[in-house]
Amino acid sequence: MKSLNILIISILSIALFAACKKEDAATPASETGQMILQFDNKVGSEELNLTESGGTVYPYKTASGQTFNITKMGYYISKIKLETEDGTVHEDEVNVSANAAEVKGYYHVLESNSSSQLITLKNIPAGKYTKVTFTIGVDEDGVQEGAAGGVLDPAEGAWFWNWNAGYIGFAIEGASPNSSQKEVVGEGWKIHEKSFALHVGGWKDVAPASGQTQKFVNNVKTLTLALDSPITVSEKLQPKAHIVVDALKVLDGVNIDFATSYAIHAPALGKPLAEQLSNAFILHHVHQ
C-alpha cells in the first residue's frame, strides 16, 4: 500500500516536473535547405524600368494604344507553401509582431528595391518540390494581429490604408497622356497631372446574408504555380524559381482606360485588377 502510494507520488512529481519544464526544442530536424523565389517585373515582353515621378516619357503601350510609364510597382507576397510530388506541403513560417525581427513570412516586393525581389525561403525539408503557392496581399490573419513592424510598419514604408484599415496588396503607379488626373499640391507632397495610381486592397471576407448582395471585396489572392520541372532542395543545393510579373497582363486584362481609371483606392474598384493577378504572375523557369 505504502509503496504504491510512493510510486504514485513519484510519478506525479515527475509528471509535474515535466509539466513545469519548458518544452524541449524539437528533436534535430532531418536535412533542410533553402530556395529562392525571384520576382521579375515586366511590361509585356519588355523589362520594367521605372520612370521618375512627374516624367513625361511614356515607354509602354496598352493593347488599346494608350502609352504610359510606371513610377512605382510592387506587392506583398505572403504565406508561401511548397509542395512535393507526393503532396507533402512545407509552409514558410508566418508571424506578425511589433518586433520587426520577428515578422516572418510577409515580403514586400518593390520594383524600386532589387533585394526585395529575391525571397530566400529557409528551413525547407530536403526533397523534390513541384509546386509553389503564395498569397498576393495580406489577409485577415495578418491584419487582425494589430500593429506590426518591418515590412508591415506604415512608418517604414508599408502600404497601409488608414480609413479602411488594411494593407494594399498590389499597386502600380505611373502616368499616361490619357490620364484625367489633375495636379494636386499638398504640403510636402504632390499628385502630378496625368498620373495614375492603381491600388488593390481589401481583405474582408464576409459572405452575404441570404437575399443580400455581396458587401466588401476581398482582393487578397492565392495562386499556385506548377514548376516547369521539379526542383530538389537539400543542404547543398539552393534552387531558384523565377517568377515574372507582367504589368501589362493586369492593365490589358481590364482593358484599362486611363481617362477613367486613374485613381483606384478602394476595394470594389480594385476588384477587376485583382482578378487579373492570376494571369500576371507566371512561373518562367527554375534553376536547379
Binding site: 491584419v143 487582425q144 494581429e145 494589430g146 500593429a147 512608418a155 517604414e156 480609413w163 484599415a165
Partner: peptide
C-alpha cells in the same frame, strides 16, 4: 467601422488633415 483593430485607430487621427495632419513617419 472602417478600422478593425484598436492599434490602427491612432494612425487615422495622426494623419487626418483635419485632426493632427502629421505623418506617422514623422511622429516616429
Amino acid at each position: 467601422g472602417g478600422v478593425t483593430h484598436l492599434d490602427f485607430v491612432p494612425i487615422n487621427a495622426i494623419e487626418a488633415a483635419f485632426e493632427m495632419d502629421e505623418t506617422i513617419e514623422n511622429v516616429v
